[in-house]
Design a protein around this nucleic acid. Structure first.
Lengths: 252, 252
DNA sequence: GAGTGGTCTAGACCACTGC
DNA sequence: CAGTGGTCTAGACCACTCG
């Protein structure tokens, strides 16, 4: 369970490395999440319980949880408890897929895995994933369809160490989204991602898969995903056909 | 100044329209911002002063301000005060321009206004801007250069009512960013925007301006910007050359 | 030192969920 | 009804800025 914590209360002498109590609490909760002490979808202990375990007031725990909720690490549910965020939650699905139909119609999504093979990391993949060149990686290619029409081709690079066990069969058998699968089968939860977008001309293979003509403009979306502690665990490149869809972004 | 507020404290009988006190306070502060009582860059009254004026505790004012700070409406500065967010603040510049060089180099930006004319709103512009078709609008075309190389062509549609007075001369004389100009000269502050991205083929005119060949892939960025109260006040379409730059997006 | 925002506490009460 | 998160208060003290 928990180790009892002897928190260092802040004094003015410590100010060079000043970190408020609630951030230290946040760090401890984060650590428990990373350790898998509470898994995605599960409830964490109540605020009062955490407060007594860490020997701080409920308000301090509350502020720690507030921050983590605003970072989509935790989800509060009034009257029920606080839960570890999960990609299995349908509400979280479109947090990482920003594609919406131009028409506004509601569409059903289908993911079709095409290939899955082992390889050795090249220089770029190694750099992005924090590996050494030559380290084992797994590459997945898949097609995303919206209402039976192909819209996205993805090529996904994963550290072989963590995702050994991944295969075309596993992908085909999975009912859930890719990130749900990663959570449930590999204990890896994606909490943040960076995307770099460019416009490119369709190569022959992608054009065929997407049903567009070679050389027509496609949206290239390069994504790096991170798990707890900002460790990169996925690198992917998607080619999006934006004939009937667009990438929607909110500049809050 | 302020009107004295007789806040309705919450009771369980009012729960169908339940809104906590701090949100009502937030609404009042928002109203003052919208009224221009405190202008961008200025400080608002201190938390203790606001608390006594609204007859609530400092903690409640604090929570209202917290939310507004997280929405980039206000900026807190410890030891100094709380300020109205402004596009003149250089830190806010790249909140709406997500373009970064592929190389990672630091670049200087230059905006060159090309044209500025009066027109009547078409069906689409009217819909997006909340106007009636035929209402006066102003259209601006401009070129954005990074390190002396053209990268973006923008076509910007503005409600003529609000931005009458805007002209090519005004744009040319302005030293600051477009949104700073809107703030300072027209009292319009953009607080939020939605962008829709697609990949398109370069038309002849844009290709010439950007120094690429006709038909080459460009990133089309369509933006609707909103001011206080989610009122749309700008619609623009940019064509981005992504040969040496990419659109960077953080999926928090 | 005076004034500002930032942290932490303790306690009261409200709103929601589920047994 | 008990248990959870959500709101509100009042007060103490810390960290930062500026004159």
């Amino acid at each position: 369970m928990f180790q009892s914590v002897s928190m260092t209360r802040q004094t003015s002498m410590e100010s060079p490395t000043f970190s408020p109590l609630y951030r230290q609490i946040k760090g401890l909760i984060l650590q428990s999440l990373d350790n898998g002490e509470w898994r995605p979808g599960e409830a964490i202990p109540s605020e009062t319980e955490l407060a007594s375990r860490f020997s701080v007031s409920q308000g301090t725990v509350r502020k720690a949880i507030d921050e983590m909720a605003s970072e989509n690490l935790l989800v509060r549910r009034q009257g029920k408890g606080t839960y570890v965020a999960s990609h299995s939650d349908p509400r979280a699905f479109f947090r990482f897929l920003r594609l919406v139909p131009l028409s506004g119609a509601i569409e059903n999504t289908r993911s079709t895995p095409l290939e899955c093979w082992r390889a050795k990391a090249g220089v770029e993949a190694a750099r992005v994933l924090g590996l050494k060149a030559g380290d084992p990686i797994i590459v997945v290619r898949r097609l995303l369809e919206f209402s039976e029409k192909p819209v996205v081709v993805d090529e996904i690079y994963l550290p072989g160490e963590i995702f050994s066990g991944l295969s075309l069969e596993v992908l085909r058998e999975s009912e859930s989204s890719l990130y749900s699968l990663f959570e449930n089968k590999f204990g890896v939860r994606m909490i943040r991602a960076e995307e770099r977008l460019r416009a490119v001309a369709a190569d022959r293979i992608s054009a065929d898969l997407l049903g567009v003509s070679e050389g027509s403009p496609l949206l290239s979306v390069e994504r790096t995903s991170f798990t707890y502690g900002d460790r990169p665990v996925e690198w992917r490149r998607g080619l999006y056909s934006t004939a009937a869809h667009c990438y929607l972004n909110d500049l809050g």
